[in-house]
Design a protein around this nucleic acid. Structure first.
Lengths: 138, 138
DNA sequence: ATATTTGCAAACAGTTTGCGCTACG
DNA sequence: CGTAGCGCAAACTGTTTGCAAATAT
């Protein structure tokens, strides 16, 4: 991960740059993938430094509160943390066979949900749109 | 709740019609609302009969497995069970102020997500679409 | 009669918290 | 140095499980 990002994150959070935190941010924001807690804990355990589980959770919360990551609870009961740093708005399609996450953008979809909320008398403040599917054979 | 429904459920599940189960099905499917576990447990505690928590969870699982209810985990970390018995396909808009759930149907939305999945090379097998919003003032 | 289902309590998984020690600024 | 942050272990929450007793068929 670029040092620039690391600095930006630390600055935004306005916190001490401890060894544990630096390493955790590296692990969590270093990947562009969607990681489960287990993925993260495994990487943490593998690392030399002795980072406690509590610190992992505390750091995740910190990053989540500041919108650097988003926690997704999918219907198949899997929970993943997604690095949203520098990412454009998008949605997810989850492969029901291997759990793999496909990202996509779609302007029409955005327009449509805004208009639906509007028609219901609501101002849309957020949304969670997840598609589940299996790869087409052909 | 109509006895007809109760019978249909029991028959579909192919289980013994015990006193606890009857009462639980009554509580869970009797309401057209979205109930949290606490809502359910409170109703259970209020009732005369001495139903154990374990039985509540076991019955919920039973109903969920047979698609009489759907468990929703919303972004605000609230979990609700929705009675889907005899219900048309629909989606949800969650009021971020009071947690109230608005249901809606939208054909265009269905079409659009099918076409999106298709374009990504997937056959759509399921989806979860939740809008979050606040009531418009005017 | 007998196989299911129950309530209970203990077990469990995931996460959070209290605390005295550590190390950043 | 003083305090934010640490790792640890204990606590907590929500859910599941094992079991002997109860009950529907």
């Amino acid at each position: 991960m670029k040092k620039k990002i690391l600095n930006e994150v630390l600055q935004a959070l306005d916190i001490k740059a401890t060894k544990s935190r630096m390493e955790l941010i590296e692990i969590i924001l270093g990947s562009n993938d969607h990681m489960s807690i287990d993925d993260i804990l495994n990487k943490v355990r593998k690392s030399k430094s002795n980072i406690g589980i509590a610190t992992v959770y505390r750091t995740l919360k910190l990053l989540e509160d500041h919108n650097f990551i988003v926690k997704h609870v999918f219907k198949n009961n899997t929970i993943v943390y997604e690095n949203t740093f520098d990412k454009a708005h998008h949605h997810h399609l989850i492969d029901i066979n291997d759990g793999h996450v496909v990202e996509y953008e779609n302007v029409d979809l955005e327009k449509l949900i805004h208009s639906i909320a509007d028609q219901l008398g609501y101002e849309l403040t957020g949304h969670s749109i997840e598609l589940y599917g299996r790869k087409k054979v052909k």
